[in-house]
Design a binder for these strands. Structure first.
Lengths: 379, 379
DNA sequence: TTGTAAGCGTTATCAG
DNA sequence: CTGATAACGCTTACAA
């Protein structure tokens, strides 16, 4: 092939003299089939009128040369699209895919992208800045930001300047689409339910407040809501405060894990009986499950001795017979929606913002509510 | 800019006359900075010698034009690489990301790819063939197949012809790298431990045998091992048979889920006490956990009334105080290894095949072994 | 240290 | 229905 000086693309078996040094291209197929490159292109894309005979000849030539369709890279450049949507994750998710909520969100995104025949480019950005480079250099037709990503600003800016549509989850920014949830309202409603039961000694087990992880007792809920930089944590604590919950103890954990909830409960319940909380509000279901397990171990009956609530609406079959009283989040829907927004923007539609509602879900760990107070009053 | 007839790339705000219709390119930056395109390229790639003054001028021009680095598509075409590794998943994983083993594998892959600044393109191929097209058309420098993928052959062929390196997990093929695990041996060892305890009435709770999902009792283990088309299922059952386990009952489930194990155990244990199995071997930890929960509910003491074993070595803190006797798999390592293989092949190294060992892990659900028999005799 | 030039492998347009 | 042509936006060997 007319290669005079060649391009260095690493070792390609140079002393192999019979076979082609580089892969067959569309032009090679055209030559062998005795047609023009455009005809070959049309044959493979299926988008143009090609006579059966010609198509046959092209396909034969392709098979002979071991040509398996247009090169994705060249096609992408020419068409200006890559067929790939970037999903950029940070924080916890970067280290482990373990959070069931994140997993379900990803699943929702994958649903939508799969249905549109789009690839999902997963980019983990960790605190060290690994991934930022990739996120700004990778080819993608749109990007979805999952949770708060630490190097987000830089990435966001690069993408925006390049005109790549961006969908933000759990945060909003002009120019970008966003999907958020009414965590605060949902938690306020759940808090109201707890208060309606007449509990006075209420403890709260929280998610991490910010990037640095510290485990232990904290003082006051309002201060906590202010101090927390993580949106989930802040919104949910604010919701509790708004509902009028004044906890006797607040315990910060290092993450949404069963073990963390277990430890927190052990600490909170290891006090004289008359000081012991009668209700523990956990900011996630996994934490709540840990609380339930700790209570079981201490011989406390749920919900008679202790009411427990969570957040997320995750399915925990192994906690049977208990089912956490929680706040249901349409997480998969959220992911699908984010995917749909990305697709819409790729088509040129303007960015939209959607807020999905969350709602309390009755379980077995809260106990019966004496008086029905379903709608929480704001204020 | 010199666009006369233009290319239709969808709506781009055509009546906006002041601003640039298309994004600024490297050439535009060069023109504004008064340097040649190659200089701009060198400036951004950082790979060539550029004087501080020139670099400054280029960066200023870029900022002015809102240019944020070379277009990924063009760069990819020119360099011949995309910086992306495809991870192709099928079967169960396609529908849900829920399997903890798969998740840990993905995590391992992500570790390695992240460290090499490579993107991870997740492609789900479902039974309907969705994703096959994408897998053959997407740009990737290497591909990793997770588990058995239904349309795999077609994808594999296309990738191979294109010269894309392929890493197979849990299967092997000439020309492709592969990483597998010694499931059969591991299970044989675990089976030997069960037999060493003197159990005679042993039941087995299996993973799905093949694509079609049927739940219920089956007859015989050898027949089962033959009938199973899913590799995990087949290998583990073969291992049991090899160890000499002759189960009194075999129960097929629809998936590795706690609920499935629970149901299976209920069915297996709902017989007259003198026919009841004294040991249940589950082919996954999640299934085993379901068995433990069912046994608890029936008031059976573990391991006194019933020995239980699993497979995978997954952490299940919520099952405390019980810890499943299981077979530990270095799953994350497996993922990392697959990533490393992909990277190596991208560098031109020949495909390698690695088999990772698995080993029994002692828990609390099997009971003490009277006589130590650590090495299983084959045959 | 910087500029020149030759593509990378396609596809969209338009003419035949 | 098919062919010629002109990009897509960038990188790199080599010359200056």
């Amino acid at each position: 092939m007319g290669l005079v000086w060649g391009i260095d693309r690493g070792p390609r078996d140079p002393d192999h003299e019979g076979g082609p040094v580089s892969r067959a291209t569309l032009a090679d197929v055209a030559r062998l089939a005795g047609v023009s490159p455009s005809t070959v292109s049309l044959t493979f894309s299926g988008s143009g009128p090609v006579s059966a005979a010609t198509r046959e000849r092209v396909l034969t030539a392709a098979a002979e040369l071991g040509y398996s369709g247009p090169d994705p890279l060249a096609r992408s450049l020419r068409r200006g699209t890559s067929g790939v949507v970037g999903v950029i994750t940070g924080g916890e998710l970067a280290a482990h895919f373990r959070d069931p909520v994140a997993i379900r969100t990803l699943d929702g995104i994958a649903d939508t992208l799969g249905a549109h025949d789009l690839g999902m480019l997963l980019i983990r950005v960790n605190n060290g800045g690994e991934g930022v480079d990739l996120a700004t250099r990778a080819a993608m037709d749109a990007a979805i930001f999952l949770r708060s990503v630490d190097g987000a600003d830089e990435i966001l800016q690069a993408l925006t300047r390049r005109g790549t549509p961006v969908v933000l989850m759990e945060s909003a920014l002009p120019g970008a689409a966003s999907v958020t949830m009414t965590d605060e309202e949902g938690m306020a409603e759940l808090g109201a339910r707890v208060l309606a039961l007449g509990h006075t000694r209420i403890a709260v087990v929280t998610l991490p407040w910010g990037r640095e992880r510290r485990r232990g007792l904290r003082h006051g809920l309002d201060a906590a809501a202010d101090a927390a930089t993580y949106r989930f944590t802040r919104d949910r604590m604010t919701g509790l405060a708004r509902a009028g919950v004044r906890p006797t103890a607040v315990y910060e954990t290092c993450g949404s894990l069963v073990e963390e909830g277990f430890e927190a409960a052990k600490a909170l319940l290891d006090v004289p009986p008359n000081e012991r909380p009668t209700a523990i509000i956990a900011l996630s279901d996994l934490l709540a499950a840990g609380v339930v397990l700790a209570a079981r171990e201490l011989g406390l009956s749920i919900p008679l001795d202790l009411s427990v609530t969570g957040f997320d609406g995750v399915d925990l079959p192994w906690l049977a017979p208990d089912v956490i009283d929680s706040v249901e989040q349409p997480v998969a829907r959220k992911g699908q929606l984010a995917g749909e927004m990305a697709v819409a923007m790729m088509r040129g539609e303007p960015p939209a913002s959607v807020e999905l509602g969350v709602w309390p879900r009755a379980g077995t760990t809260l106990g019966p509510v004496p008086e029905s107070r379903s709608s929480a009053e704001a204020g």
